[in-house]
Every structure is written in C-alpha cells, then in structure tokens.
Design a binder for these strands. Structure first.
Lengths: 197, 197
DNA sequence: GTCTATAAAAGGATAGAC
DNA sequence: GTCTATCCTTTTATAGAC
C-alpha cells in the first residue's frame, strides 16, 4: 500500500539543497521562506530541520560546496606548460564551470551579505584562493616576458569580473554556443594582458 | 521651545531615501524592514508612508533615480572626436560615476530580482540604453578600422562587467587612487578592443 | 523521518489622535 | 507630518505524536 507520508529513503536531503539553491537564486535568500523550500520539496517546514540546523547553515553549505568544487576543479587542472597556455585553460575552465552552474554562481556572488560573519570569512578565504591562482599565472607570464601587465592584482580582478559577467546574460540556445563565447572572451583576455605574439 | 516631534521642514523625504539606500545596500532589500528604515531616520514606521506608497515604490524610486542620473551624465558627455577618444571618455565616466555612488550601484545590480515585473522592465530598458551607448562607440570604432572587435555585443558586456567590477573592491585610501585605477583599466580596455597604434 | 500544532517574534501597512 | 496603536500575515524554529 502506498505511503503518503513517512521516510523517503534518504533522498530528501539532496532535494532540499536543490530546492533551496533554485529558490535562493531566483528570489534571494532573505526573500525565501523555509515553508517555500519545504513546499518545493513536498514536505512540511518542520521536516527541513532534520537536515539543517537552520536557514543560515543551509545557505552556507550551498556556498561552501560551490567554492570547494571550484577550487577542486582548478587544482585538478594541469599546471604545466606556458603561462599563456595556463591562462587559456583558466579562461576556459572559469567560463565552463560557471555556465554549468548558474544558480550556484548567482548565490555565491549575491548572498555574501547574508552570511554570518564567521561564515563570510570562510567563503572569502576560498574566493581569495581562487583569485590567487589566476594572479600567480599572470605574475608568471609577466615575469617571463610573455604578458604585459601594469598591475597584476587589478588584472586578476578585471579578468574574473569580465568572465563571470558571462553568467548574467548567457542562455543556452542563444546566438552563441558556450564554446564560441569562450573563444571571444579568450581573445579579449589575451589582448588585455598583452599576450606576446 | 524645542519640538521633539512633528514636522521637520520637509527634509524627511530625502533622509528616508538616504537611509533606505544605505540599508538596502548593506543588507539587501528583502532583509531590511520599514521599521529599520524609520529608526535610522528617527521617525516611526507609519511616517514613512507619507513619502512612499509602499516599500516596493521606495526601491524602484532609488533605482530609477540612479539610472536616470547615469544616462543624463552620459548624454552630457561630448560625442565628438574619435571612437578611441569617446571610448576613453566612457571608461573614465563609468568608473568615476560608479565609484562615487557605491550604494546606488550595488542596489542597481543586486536588487533587480526584487522589482515588480513592470518596474523591472523600466529599469532593464534604461540599462539597455546605457549598454547601447557603449556598443555604438565600439561599432563606430570597428567600422572606422580603429578597433578590432570580433563581437561588439560581447565586447560591450565584457567591458561593462570589467569596469563595474571595480566597485566590488575599490576603497578610498587604498593602494591606488581612482585616477590610477582608471589608468590601469583604460589600458586593459584599450588592448582588449584592439585600439590601433 | 515526517507530521501537526504552536510558540514567539517580526513583517507591511493602516486608522485616527494630535 | 508624525505618533501611537493595532490589524493581519508571515516568519523561524521547536515539541511531541505517529
């Protein structure tokens, strides 16, 4: 006999995270209630607290998971070859990773304000690590004479801002494919940092 | 005899806008209550409704005012001279305007989700006008052979994202002055769009 | 593991006195 | 133009039944 309530074989946790991710991205953390998340999952609000101590922890978990995955992806990229090659790999990785996860990216950039101070510090630390990875590539290229960059710190921030901006307008099925977008952006990044040749 | 309550010579309206602007930028529209705004101004919540029909109208008014001012500033810039000159003027204007108004910029980019559909359309229209202004400069430069741009639409979005990113990290009194930042960014924009010479 | 019920607080907005 | 008081809704989170 079918059960209309009760345990659901342990899949509720992931479904809560998915629903929260989607709703937070669409409407913003502060504008989404625990009841709305529960409703999207198909449970009552009280059931959510079997999976998260509170709403804040749910937000932090989503953001931390996203940053961890981003850094793990970067770490898994080969760091051999010329600075130009590594920069091109970074551009491709950044665009691909971010276009594949529009909701996570949106939350990671928009909901920093809604993190508790301790949680904010954790996420900011991870973000710094990511920026430092790009900056080390730019510094290496500058030192080797492959790039011409007046200020590597500013170039780092400018490149990341430029690339991340893709997520604000890109839609699958639009005028350009993700690969074509990557080509165009690589062309601009390459010129902006003065890649030789 | 000093009055501890009552009319305040018509300055409450601007003060409400200032307080709302600051609080919305710091904590986000949805996370700020009318009571908090009233408290920052030094009035009771009910008094706010002498100045705005509701919270949504207050947000829209702030965003619309910001976009109107941005477009008016662009319109007041001379549109003569070479495409390169106009692009350089645009870069300087964009950075200066945005660094002078960090709270307005933050709201204009972060709170689009919290606008009612009709209000959203208005703000989006104004944003499109601004983007079109830059794109027309890039198209002119490309047509005249001054720039080398594979895709002017993407270049427009990339340049605006890059420049607006400055507001996320720039702080007065930091390592670089606003003028120095502008110099560095102009260098990167110039290269990215392949300015001749 | 989920439900129902509820506590306790905070939210937007309005009415009427001054 | 502002205050006090209040309405009504919604919120997060918890308690205890099943």
């Amino acid at each position: 006999m079918a059960r209309t309530q009760g345990s659901h074989a342990g899949i509720t946790g992931p479904r809560i995270r998915e629903a929260a991710l989607k709703l937070f991205a669409e409407r913003g953390f502060a504008a989404v209630s625990m009841r709305q998340i529960a409703s999207a999952v198909g449970v009552q609000a009280g059931a959510l607290y079997n999976y998260t101590p509170d709403k804040q922890a749910l937000l932090f978990s989503l953001m931390k998971g996203h940053m961890d995955e981003l850094l793990a992806t970067v770490a898994a990229t080969p760091q051999t070859g010329s600075a130009q090659q590594r920069l091109q790999d970074f551009v491709r990785l950044h665009i691909t990773f971010h276009l594949d996860r529009p909701d996570e990216v949106f939350i990671a950039y928009m909901e920093l304000r809604n993190l508790d101070p301790e949680n904010f510090d954790v996420i900011e630390g991870l973000r710094s690590q990511y920026e430092n990875h790009l900056e080390s590539i730019l510094q290496a290229g500058e030192a080797e004479g492959d790039f011409t960059i007046p200020d590597t710190k500013l170039a780092t921030l400018a490149v990341i801002a430029m690339l991340t901006g893709v997520t604000t307008w890109y839609r699958p099925g639009g005028r350009l494919s993700a690969d074509e977008v990557t080509q165009v952006y690589w062309d601009m990044v390459r010129k902006a940092v003065g890649v030789r040749g």
